[in-house]
Amino acid sequence: MLIDLKDALKLYLSRQEQDFGVFQTPIPGMVIGHAEAQKLPDYAIYRPALGIVVEGAKQVWLGEQVLDYAEGEGLLVSVSLLAKGVITRASPERPFLGVSIELDVAVLREVAAMLGPEDKKAASANIGLSVHVLGPEVIDCLVRLARLLETTDSLPILYPGLLRELSYWLLRSDAGPELLALVRPEGPSSRVENALAILRSDFAKTIHVEELAAAVGMSLTSFHRHFKALTRVTPIQYQKQLRLVEARRILDAGDDNVTSAAFAVGYESAGQFSRDYSRFYGLPPKRDTLSRRLSTASTVIR
Rank of each mutant, 00 (worst) to 15 (best):
A125D: 15
F273N: 02
R144V: 10
Y159P: 01
A106T: 15
G161V: 15
I87N: 04
Y46H: 11
R191L: 09
L103T: 08
L294I: 14
G161N: 15
A125V: 06
E150K: 07
D276E: 05
R94N: 11
Q38T: 10
D4Y: 08
H34Y: 11
L199I: 01
R109A: 12
W61T: 01
G161I: 15
L9P: 00
S295H: 14
L2R: 08
V22R: 12
L149M: 09
F263W: 11
A125E: 10
R109H: 14
A113M: 09
L244E: 00
F280N: 00
T206Y: 10
P28Y: 02
V192F: 03
V209N: 01
Q24T: 13
A146Y: 04
Y12M: 10
N194V: 06
K286E: 15
I207W: 11
E55L: 02
L50F: 03
L145F: 01
V107Y: 07
G187S: 00
F263D: 05
A83D: 05
L40M: 09
L180C: 08
A247F: 04
L103P: 08
V233M: 10
V66P: 05
S124C: 08
G266R: 12
L97S: 04
N257Q: 14
A70K: 12
D255T: 13
T221K: 14
S124R: 05
A197F: 11
R147V: 08
Q59F: 03
G135F: 01
L166M: 07
R144I: 04
L2S: 01
T25N: 02
G98H: 01
P117A: 02
Q65L: 06
S154Y: 12
V99R: 03
